[in-house]
């Protein structure tokens, strides 16, 4: 089975995020009432796994071993079935 996982990596709440702070300052110059910004990373992975449970296990390993550093980061994973033929990395623009 081919799966696509989106792995979101973000600094833990207690870890400083200087990039987020810089963005906060810049957004405030637009006068929009922004009170907090946290930055992170999104990694989209296409891979094969036997079933959904195996896919979940694989993405947990990806997060723990490489994509996030347990000392400073949290990560969350969204998994969906991917088309086995077409590898489409275009951004899903969810309707608001």
């Amino acid at each position: 089975m081919r799966y696509r996982a989106t792995i979101h990596v973000r600094p833990k709440p207690e870890v400083r995020d200087p990039q987020g702070d810089a963005i906060l300052g810049a957004l405030n110059s637009l006068g929009l009432g922004v009170t907090g910004v946290r930055t992170g990373k999104e990694i989209v992975v296409t891979f094969d796994a036997a079933d959904e449970a195996a896919a979940k296990k694989a993405t947990d390993t990806m997060g723990r071993e490489l994509l996030a550093n347990p000392v400073i980061d949290d990560f969350a994973v969204e998994i969906s079935r991917a088309d086995p033929v077409v590898e489409d990395f275009s951004i899903d623009l969810a309707t608001p």
Binding site: P11, V15, R16, P18, Q19, A22, N69, V71, I72
Partner: peptide, 17 residues
């Protein structure tokens, strides 16, 4: 060495960017 767990903690972006 920190990433490998041979030393404690982690090194992150300088606070001044």
């Amino acid at each position: 060495l920190c990433e490998a767990g041979l030393l404690p903690g982690a090194l992150t972006r300088n606070t001044g960017l």
